[in-house]
C-alpha cells in the first residue's frame, strides 16, 4: 500500500518536473536563439515478487511471474536544436546561423561558451561583443572610421572606411559544432558550455564542416512552439491529477485495512 503511494508520488514528481520545464520553454518563447528542451522519463527498477519460471504452490512452473515496478524517474533533459524562424532586423551585427554551428563567446571566467544567439554589438574599444559585453571569438575589431559593416555567408567581416573605394577585411568569424549538441549544458545568458557528453568543439569557418552559413541582418527566433507546449502542459496536469488519485485510492485502502478491527 505504502509502495503504491510512493510509486504514484514518483509520477507526480515527474509531472511536476515536466511542467517546470514547459514553463521555462514558454518563458523563453521570445528569446533569440533559444532551443526548447524536453524531459525524458524512464520506468524504475522492478521488484520481483515471484520470478517467471519459479515453482508455484501446486508445483507447476509459473509462466510469467509477478514483478511490480517502482514508478518513474526523469532520465534526461534533451535540448532540441531544430532551427527557429529567422527574423530580419536590418542591424548589420545581427547574425543568424543556418546550419548546425554555434558562435564562440569569451566567457569572463576565461572559458569559451557557445551560443546560437547572434545579437552582436560594438564595444567602446571597437570589438564585437554580445549583448552582455562578452567578446566574440576570434576577436574582431571594427575600426572607428568604418561607415558600414558587411558579414559574408562564409563569415568574412569587411568594412567600408570613410574615404576609401574598396572594402577592408577586418576579421573572419569562426563557428563551432559538436558531435552531440544535446549534451551541451545551458549556463544562462543564452550560453552553452561543452560537457563530457557533448564532445569537444569542432571549429572551422562557416559553410565548411557542416557548420552552416551566416545570415547577416537576421536573428534566429526561439524554436518553442506555444501550441505544442500548451498541449504538453495540459497532458502533464492531467497525469499529475491521475497520480494523486492513485495515492488517494491507496490511502483509502489502507484506511479500510485499519478499520477491519473494530
Amino acid at each position: 500500500m505504502i509502495k503504491a503511494m510512493r510509486t504514484a508520488a514518483s509520477g507526480m514528481i515527474a509531472q511536476q518536473m515536466k511542467v517546470d520545464n514547459i514553463a521555462n520553454n514558454l518563458a523563453n518563447v521570445s528569446t533569440t536563439g533559444f532551443k526548447r528542451s524536453a524531459i525524458e522519463f524512464q520506468d524504475v527498477l522492478y521488484q520481483n515478487v515471484r520470478r517467471a519460471g519459479s515453482a508455484s504452490a501446486v508445483g507447476a512452473e509459473v509462466p510469467t511471474g509477478l514483478a511490480v515496478g517502482y514508478g518513474t524517474r526523469a532520465a534526461a533533459t534533451v535540448r532540441q536544436f531544430s532551427e527557429g524562424n529567422l527574423m530580419p532586423t536590418g542591424n548589420p551585427l545581427d547574425m543568424a546561423i543556418t546550419g548546425d554551428g554555434f558562435f564562440q563567446i569569451q566567457h569572463p571566467d576565461g572559458t569559451t561558451a557557445y551560443t546560437r544567439d547572434g545579437t552582436f554589438n560594438i564595444s567602446a574599444d571597437g570589438r564585437v561583443v554580445n549583448s552582455d559585453g562578452f567578446f566574440m571569438l576570434p576577436e574582431i575589431t571594427i575600426p572607428e572610421d568604418a561607415t558600414s559593416i558587411s558579414v559574408g555567408a562564409d563569415g568574412v567581416v569587411q568594412v567600408m572606411v570613410f574615404g576609401e573605394q574598396e572594402p577592408t577585411e577586418v576579421g573572419q568569424i569562426e563557428l563551432a559544432r559538436f558531435i552531440n549538441p544535446a549534451g551541451l549544458m545551458a549556463v544562462g545568458r543564452n550560453l552553452l558550455v561543452p560537457t563530457g557528453a557533448s564532445g569537444e568543439p569542432i571549429t572551422d569557418i562557416p559553410t565548411q564542416s557542416g557548420l552552416g552559413q551566416i545570415d547577416q541582418g537576421y536573428l534566429e527566433m526561439s524554436n518553442v512552439k506555444v501550441v505544442d507546449e500548451m498541449v504538453n502542459m495540459i497532458v502533464a496536469q492531467r497525469a499529475y491529477e491521475m497520480n494523486s488519485k492513485a495515492i488517494q485510492t491507496a490511502d483509502d485502502m489502507a484506511a479500510i485495512a485499519n478499520n477491519l478491527k473494530r
Binding site: 509502495k3 510509486t7 509520477g11 515536466k18 515478487v49 511490480v68 514508478g71 518513474t72 497520480n243
Partner: peptide, 30 residues
C-alpha cells in the same frame, strides 16, 4: 487488490514514459 493497486500506480506514473508497456495482472482462483 493491493498488488493490483501497486501495478496500476506504476502504470499511471509511467503515462509519459516513451516506449513504456503497461503491466497487467490476472488473478487466478485455485
Amino acid at each position: 487488490r493491493i498488488k493490483k493497486q501497486e501495478l496500476t500506480a506504476h502504470n499511471i506514473s509511467n503515462v509519459s514514459t516513451p516506449g513504456y508497456k503497461r503491466d497487467a495482472l490476472f488473478t487466478k482462483e485455485l
